[in-house]
Design a binder for these strands. Structure first.
Lengths: 252, 252
DNA sequence: CTTATCTGCGTAGACCATACGCAGAAGCTA
DNA sequence: TAGCTTCTGCGTATGGTCTACGCAGATAAG
């Protein structure tokens, strides 16, 4: 019956997958987990993650603070749930006749889009490997993009982590810049300009030749941001391609 | 005298670069910024970032909570300063006769080592582009590794960001796993095993062929962690190499 | 010696997460 | 139908958090 390898699911995971059947004894619940999560997302979206407190979220629902703890074990679990549903489902998976590269590109851009639409998500620390429903769906589609490439299992996983890590860090940096701009009432361009000015001044008297060369070279692109994203992603995928080609060619 | 393009440095940056001369009027200071930062690091290192509160750090120094605000404008600025000094200086820069790839590899591994030595750093959210002294030094050496490769300025910056982002996200995931293990009194291997077991159970009845294939393939490496790190880094650098070679060969 | 300025720091305000326990609602069992 | 069990929302309380404000005393300039 039980083979001993069974370890019961952590509470938060069971919750995320909807595996907690409501008991039939007591009074009916006035709220639902989905409502609580949605209210949390709404607060985060409109006022930032910092505004997400148990009492603020409860207020949004017309409930008392402590009521939320009937739906969620801990605030951090609520945040995890919020991230999972705010991320939403992944973009369409690789089509039968599609190459791995366009599929993985779409997957990466989906990551970026999700993070851009809900920028507060970048401030929720990653609590572990992907285990919640949407996270798992994203993982599935990411792996699907790499099926049949000859990459080993761990390599496929590493590649997915590599790409999503890139999307996250890129989204983070640009969103930080954007928010700094809004805070100071400037355009992002101005903020970027000030950054380089400050950097130039601070490094002026020190041994920073590479930075000076960089500054001297100047930098006035139009579609700067998007080009930079594409560049990084292109490098990552080129690297993956190199490996795939050696696998496909060399056989072994 | 002033050409109008001058924008004064933000307070926290000036502080980080030691550009705030102490005024000569009042009584002598009982502490120094360095001491405050060091105390913060010590608390973070021994009890985790969560234990770093103004009162805890002040206690470490035998001072009152509010005294710290004579040295640091805000708690978040303290955290930024802590990260900058805990990161420490970068590893040796690219030697004259050294290729870009070993130099950048060393740089990436330096990132990883720093993050591993002080794992609490991963929980301090990145507050903007690198502007504090050690951050700038790391940037300098990273760019140095790419000097003379034919890469444009923005491309060099993107590459650096790509590599450091990879190091950060990889360090984060492994440290999370490690801490989860410690918390539950298991070995990291056991935690990893449980993860795959849970994932298998949760996806058992759903449309997750790629995940099932991954699980079926099994995964029992010895030096698993390190191999995975090297794989991702290798992919990134291969991608960079592709671009450098087209630049070097094709001219324009 | 006066005066300006800076120091450490006590107090207080406005939050926060969450442990505990209670009154009442809902269903199960007899 | 009665009683028991279990579950509900949520009030209260504990023990934190950051930091604004302002005061008493120290220091040095004029």
């Amino acid at each position: 019956m039980s083979d001993g390898s069974d370890v019961e699911l952590p509470e938060n995971v069971a919750l995320a997958w909807g595996l907690r059947e409501r008991p039939s004894r007591g009074p009916k619940r006035g709220l639902s987990l989905e409502q609580v999560v949605a209210a949390g997302i709404q607060v985060a979206q409109s006022e930032g993650l910092g505004a997400v407190s148990m009492s603020r979220v409860a207020g949004e629902l017309g409930a008392a603070t402590m009521s939320l703890y009937r739906y969620v074990p801990t605030k951090h679990d609520l945040l995890d749930l919020m991230v999972d549903t705010a991320y939403g489902p992944p973009p369409p998976p690789r089509a039968p006749d599609e190459g791995w590269r366009p599929a993985l590109t779409r997957w990466a851009e989906g990551n970026l889009t999700a993070l851009r639409r809900q920028p507060w998500m970048r401030h929720v620390p990653i609590s572990g490997p992907p285990i919640n429903p949407n996270q798992v769906r994203w993982l599935e589609y990411g792996l699907t993009a790499l099926a049949g490439t000859g990459l080993r299992g761990t390599e496929r996983v590493s590649t997915i982590m590599l790409v999503s890590g890139y999307a996250r860090s890129w989204a983070t940096t640009t969103a930080d810049l954007m928010e700094a701009a809004v805070r100071s009432g400037q355009t992002p361009d101005q903020v970027g300009l000030h950054y380089w000015q400050h950097l130039a001044r601070l490094t002026a008297d020190g041994p920073y030749p590479a930075i000076h060369e960089l500054i001297a070279e100047g930098d006035d692109e139009d579609d700067y941001a998007d080009a930079e994203w594409r560049f990084g992603l292109g490098r990552v995928l080129d690297g993956v391609e190199v490996m795939i080609q050696t696998r496909t060619a060399g056989g072994r």
